[in-house]
Amino acid sequence: MTSLIDMLGDEMAGRAERFLGFARRRLTGDFTVDSFGFDAELTENVLLPALRPLYRNWFRVEVRGIDNVPADGAALIVANHSGTVPVDSLMTQLAVHDEHPASRHLRALGATLVFQLPVVSDLARKSGSTLACNEDVEKLLAGGELVGVWPEGFKGVGKPYSERYQLQRFGRGGFVAAALRSGAPIVPCSIVGAEEIYPMIANADFLARLLRLPYIPITPTFPWLGPAGLVPLPSKWIIEFGEPIETENYGDGAADDPMVVFDLTDRVRDTIQQTLHTLVEERGNPFI
């Protein structure tokens, strides 16, 4: 008897096999999540593949300096934040996973708002994100994880298009203190391209306050084109990972010394700002 498999060939058989196994593990709950809610199997098989077309074909992300991301052990990737909708953190996650030889998972830190929203909060935890608070960062770093932080927060994502590629304040330097405490290196990361995906020309401030959101963007396409306005513009992206900044040699108590924390914060910020200027110039036209 010829079965379906003989007609489809070995590659399809393997695929069917993997799919059935995956489906059965999902339906019987036979998988594990870590203490932050990270579901590695779901992330690798569903969440990252869903983002890949956007990464490869739409934004045509070019990654530089991936060797600066350590192959194992804890490290803190610090990046600029932009684009109205925080797509840049998703693309960085994908860049680290797909381009790094060790296929590491980047554990992104999110604002409280992320964990307040239904669906978003669920997907964030499943894909390895957690709340940006000291306890969680230090736990992740102590566990040897690769942690990603976007210290500008909403000030960065929600800034008008006219201020593109100008870094906002880097929070209160909490990320630097966390890195100092755990001795993890800081990898500055500069992302070019996210600024153009939803160019924010105005903010529906009144409505935002009514809905208790940090901002409601008005872009050339949103809300004018309705749901079509939600499609990001196809800008060309470059993500560059800079040289790691070691934090091991600062000694005990450095994390509680505001001067050390401020200096280090400024150093990281300046590195990213300068790289951004260079990259923007190199890229030329944002959409080609």
């Binding site: 498999i5 096999e17 059935l20 059965r24 019987t28």
Partner: peptide, 15 residues
């Protein structure tokens, strides 16, 4: 039940 369905699908596909 899930295991049984899985088994059926596997035999249909010849896996």
């Amino acid at each position: 039940r899930v295991a049984a369905v899985d088994q059926v699908l596997r035999s249909v596909c010849g896996l």
